[in-house]
Write a protein that binds this DNA or RNA. Structure first.
Lengths: 346, 346
DNA sequence: CTGAAAGCGCTAACAA
DNA sequence: TTGTTAGCGCTTTCAG
């Protein structure tokens, strides 16, 4: 009735626990015959090492390297919190994180990743800003037994073990489904994006386009505007948009720069008249929900993403839990009612 | 640089680790003077016992009693899965759950709870179907040091340590916010509920009413229908509703019986014409999302509720983490796009 | 009232 | 190739 341990296996195999240990860990200095016998018994007993005992005994710490951007703060601060909160729950299991952030997405990340590998990490958690440039590094790391988990955005051509993210296509698609319920049939809407060169923005835009065609009968996407991640540019482009298209019913913003759009709408007294669906959530957006300028926002839960990725890596490295090749987070819908429940609003 | 342990404390206090242990655990057989000295040193060092070592050493298992309903299956099966999944992650810490389900909400739960208390649990996780009847039992248990966590619905007048739930008022309020964006100004809508005698249904109904008044200018709630948790009754009442109120724009259903409403709407070819916002999620609803009969559903994430409650109890009982007096789960919005990501659809 | 010592299940160094 | 043994940090029992 008690969970079997090394002693039980040793007893059944008629050997000592030292030998059992060697067999279980594939260490040298044991005959093929006894190893196989021991492994068979272990499998038969469904032996699972006691994690607490292992953690207590092994001096070997599990090191997980973390390389995520510092900016944009509202997003990555949450992700970091999720990572460290979860890490703390595993420190009794000997999990320790080595933190090497980059300032902005993609800036000098190759260097940081190399540093982490030199620090001897067994796991790597990173937001790949330039997936192409990172691909060979990631693949080489995996080849050497370092498990890498991509978060938020993927490096699909690399050998990374897993990715934790919100599917950007689905993200845009959900925005479109919402939008199509907010505007009448045959409505005209616009998309404001960051840089279409960014995979993430491109896919969200694509998802929205497909979804809007699917859900809004006779609807049209008038224009897709690239604001290049500039607040000033976003504002001017929004003004121009409102000026040039008088029949506009909705705007979907999939970049972080939604505040300039809100400002433009509010200046023209269009809150609630033109439906605005945004992406992500930060403190300053709150006001625009209350003013009914933003109808809804698609939330990617950076805290949960970070937490999940770290948990997957930690449990894999500590207990050998298999890593799923991808873990998709459910995109949330933020509305005024639920605003107070989000961490970002605290 | 290493975390301080009992040995370090003993060394500094000039006593043995046995004495330190007695002081730390408030056990008898130690002088007031040495106890205070030891506690001071411990606080000074910010001593935290190593959870792995504690789990390994202590024979004492942490028992958590679980009393949740078996029906309605789609909801409580998920909750149970969340509870047991999380419990498995704590079994190396000596956490074991004693499972004493009731068949339906509130049926014979007092008896089951008594059984659990007699089994010597230190924690209790339960869905109180009849909070009033359970209140004295809960309070007495707490008085004897048993921590009780209510899930999904509260026993607010008892001394329960914590509750994990979606605020039902907010739940209804969110439904109203959504509905008001789906229907035009001045729209007429109806509410179909289970039993207004049930606190949960009453509050959701109230939340919706308040929210709809707030968000839908000139809107009206024509009627609040009680279907008494009967599918047949739901169907007939829905038919009558559609017959009697020709100007109806939307229906909010906060009971599990949304399928009869869908059927009534589809028979009259009103999918998408009359907006339907429901509560919760189960397999058979899928079809009605695809048919655009259901516009959105408010999701209470029973898996997450169960998981969270068990985690709070386990970490409190094992490591002394403080219990928050309430933990509110964010109500989710289910739409067609995200349907495949929900456990319920697997 | 306090100290010493035996484990909990596992790893790893050291003997044989 | 295999067995023995000393801890990891804590709890608990048994002596003093």
């Amino acid at each position: 009735m008690k969970r079997p341990g090394v002693h039980e296996i040793a007893r059944r195999a008629g050997v000592s626990i030292g030998t059992v240990d060697r067999a279980l860990h594939g260490r040298a200095g044991i005959s093929k015959a006894t190893r196989e016998k021991i492994l068979a018994i272990a499998k038969d007993l469904a032996y699972v090492p006691h994690p607490a005992a292992r953690a207590l005994s092994a001096r070997r710490n599990v090191r997980i390297g973390v390389c995520i951007p510092r900016e944009i703060h509202f997003f990555y601060d949450q992700m970091r919190a999720g990572i460290f909160d979860e890490a703390r729950r595993h420190d009794s299991a000997g999990v320790e994180v080595v933190y090497r952030p980059v300032v902005k997405l993609g800036e000098g990340e190759a260097q940081k990743v190399k540093e982490l590998l030199e620090a001897g990490v067994q796991g790597l958690l990173l937001v790949p800003g330039s997936p192409e440039a990172l691909t060979p590094i990631i693949s080489r790391a995996e080849d050497k037994g370092v498990r890498v988990a991509c978060v938020s955005t993927d490096a699909p051509r690399s050998w990374r073990s897993t990715v934790v993210c919100v599917d950007p296509l689905m993200n845009g698609h959900l925005a479109a489904e919402l939008m199509s319920k907010f505007v009448p049939e045959g409505a005209h809407v616009a998309i404001l994006t960051g840089m279409l060169g960014t995979e993430d923005h491109r896919l969200k835009t694509q998802g929205f386009s497909e979804g809007f065609a699917e859900y809004c009968m006779g609807g049209r996407i008038l224009t897709v505007i690239e604001a290049h991640e500039s607040a000033k540019e976003s504002y001017h482009l929004s003004r121009a948009l409102l000026r040039d298209y008088s029949g506009l019913s909705g705007i979907y913003v999939n970049t972080v720069n939604c505040l300039p759009v809100c400002r433009a709408l509010e200046e023209k007294n269009l809150s609630g008249k033109i439906k605005l669906v945004t992406t992500d959530l930060f403190r300053k957006m709150e006001l625009h929900f209350y003013r009914n300028t933003i109808q809804a926002s698609i939330y990617q839960d950076p805290y949960l993403q970070g937490q999940t990725a770290l948990r997957l890596l930690a449990e894999h490295l500590v207990s050998g839990t298999p890593l799923p090749s991808a873990h998709y987070i459910n995109p949330g819908v933020v509305m005024e009612t639920t605003l107070p429940l989000f961490r970002e609003m605290q």
